[in-house]
Design a protein around this nucleic acid. Structure first.
Length: 508
RNA sequence: GGUCCUAUCGUCUAGGGGUUAGGACAUCUCCCUUUCACGGAGGAAACAGGGGUUCAAUUCCCCUUAGGACUACCA
């Protein structure tokens, strides 16, 4: 069993945008597959026709591509076990359900939803602690176990709807060996007779999942912790279908939790906190609602991957910065934590900052080039080198770069009020005339000249530098001013100084 | 309510029968500096509670508490 080739799958359901927690599940599957030289499969679990959301499947594809999770087999690349959409595999499930019925492990049930509801109410009224369709209550319901054989046959031959339910044993200890949690024991009496085949002819998750994992020769099922309670059902199915010896190993991942307060991370949290909880932007086709994505918020895919990988897993030392190849090299299921992780966007921001700093000036220049086409790439590179240490997001680079090319049209109100006084204005006027005379317009020269001018006028640098910055860039902070002047050039410097002198009112 | 899972600084976590309980993010102080950052130095900050087991428990066991998941003809 353990010598089987490693084949893992990520099996999302296209009912909306892929949550960032889902991306992490995909990532762990991917890292494990790559580490074990195995196969990473993506299967679309679209057995619920009512929950189909247009664009959701495309979204999954795009999100995984963006973050850098590559798929060996998928609906889009195909593979030896195609098709990879459960809706396209519809015809494959009934035979296995029939196999279970014939072996006495499943049975037909004919109850209407009203009758089911009635049963629930009755059990609740009787104060049954755990009302469900199970080994006891099934005998009071309308199914093949309680109805005469010919009546059952008649029903099946008619057009009337029916389902197939799993016949959960009454008293049996079911054990699951989870790779993360160890042995988990559940008694069959706490399980209910899950529907396997729905009345629309589609299988439920439980059947489809087990059948497909078997057919696709999945060796390890790595999925969210929300599946742990139904894992005993799946174990039962493997056993009843006679596949116990090829049952995959399970690893149930801890959940991603809200950053503040309690509960698991949800769609809402992003809106409330002003940060993304989705990999890429999602525009809901039905409600028109828009959800921001990591990508659109300026996160780099490699930073997002690194952040996600460390949320619930670590290599066992104090290192935190890993690229894709290193993550693959280091990844093991044993080092995945057992407890849920609160989602901390601050940490994500830090990762992003680190990755931006790691980028070469050339890469960054290429990124902003479309917006500054008319400028030489060398200049853009210098500018990127100057500002990359001070930003968290790519978008900020564009913003910061802008003032190198555009004379400010507005000036930061607060800075103007605090720093633009008569002394500063007087010096800037003086400096504007002085700049004319500087032959070699280089940062070091400019600095030297400015300091001698300041000194000869008995002015402390701190008194005027902020005002000068405001005049040149329109804002109160930024990289070294002397370098800024060098880059924008002598005539532009003078132009900006004069523009500021004309525009800004002297206060005090 | 029932079943199951979980529990180390505010957060992500390392560790593990005997440690000054380590790191990172965030936070605070100082240094650098023309500003904001970056960088450097330092500070504050944790083993949920109660029982066992043991010479010794934060670590192992049990209980409590807290949090989480599940409890559909959804996945």
């Amino acid at each position: 069993m353990s010598n089987l080739p490693v084949r893992v799958r990520f099996a999302p359901s296209p009912t909306g945008p892929l949550h960032i927690g889902g991306v992490r599940t995909a990532l762990y599957n991917y890292l494990f597959a790559k580490k074990q030289k195995g196969t990473m499969i993506l299967r679309i679990e679209d057995t619920d026709q009512n929950r189909f959301v247009p664009g959701a499947e495309e979204y999954i594809k795009e999100a995984l591509e963006w973050i850098g999770i590559t798929l060996d087999e998928s609906p889009w690349n195909g593979g030896p076990y195609a098709p990879y959409r459960q809706s396209e595999r519809k015809s494959m499930y009934m035979q296995y359900a029939m196999q279970l019925v014939e072996a006495g492990f499943a049975y037909y049930a004919f109850d209407t939803s009203e009758e089911l509801e009635e049963m629930r109410k009755r059990l609740e009224a009787a104060k049954v602690p755990d009302p469900k369709y199970n080994s006891i209550t099934r005998m009071q319901m309308k199914n093949a176990l309680t109805m005469p054989e010919d009546e059952v046959k008649e029903w099946l031959n008619s057009e009337k709807p029916y389902v197939i339910r799993l016949k959960v044993p009454r008293k049996e200890e079911i054990r699951i060996n989870d790779l993360i949690r160890g042995w988990v024991m559940v008694h069959s009496s706490s399980l209910d007779d899950k529907v396997l085949m729905k009345s629309d002819g589609m299988p439920t998750y439980h059947l489809a999942n087990v059948v497909d994992d078997y057919l696709m020769k999945i060796s390890h099922v790595i999925r969210g912790e929300e599946w742990l309670p139904s894992a005993p059902i799946h174990v039962l199915l493997y056993k009843y279908l006679g596949w116990e010896n090829v049952m995959p190993q399970f690893a149930h991942l801890p959940l991603l939790l809200k950053p503040d307060g309690n509960g698991k991370l949800s769609k809402r949290d992003g809106d409330l906190g002003g940060y993304p909880v989705f990999p890429i932007e999602w525009n809901d086709p039905t409600t028109g609602a828009k959800f921001m994505g990591f990508r659109e918020s300026g996160f780099l895919p490699e930073a997002t991957m690194n952040f996600l990988a460390l949320l619930g897993w670590n290599p066992g030392n104090n290192d935190e910065l890993f690229d894709n190849a290193q993550l693959i090299e280091l990844f093991t299921i044993e080092r995945i934590g057992k407890s849920g992780s609160k989602f901390d966007i601050q940490k994500a921001r830090w990762f992003n900052q680190e990755y931006i700093k790691k980028k070469s000036n050339a890469e960054l220049a290429a990124y902003i080039q479309p917006e500054f086409k008319e400028y030489p790439i060398e200049t853009l590179e210098v500018i990127c080198g100057l500002i990359k240490e001070r930003v968290t997001f790519l978008s900020e680079i564009k913003k910061e770069a802008a003032y190198f090319f555009n004379t400010p049209t507005t000036y930061d109100q607060a800075v103007a009020e605090n720093k633009w006084n008569s002394e500063a204005a007087a010096f800037i006027k003086l400096w504007a005339d002085f700049v004319f005379k500087i032959e070699d317009f280089k940062a070091e020269v400019i600095k030297h000249e400015m300091h001698s001018l300041l000194e000869s006028n008995g002015i402390k640098p701190g008194k005027v530098m902020q005002a000068l910055r405001l005049a040149l860039t329109g804002v109160g902070q930024g990289p070294d001013l002397m370098t800024v002047m060098q880059i924008i050039g002598k005539s532009e410097t003078i132009k900006r100084l004069n523009h500021a002198l004309q525009t800004l009112k002297v206060i005090g």
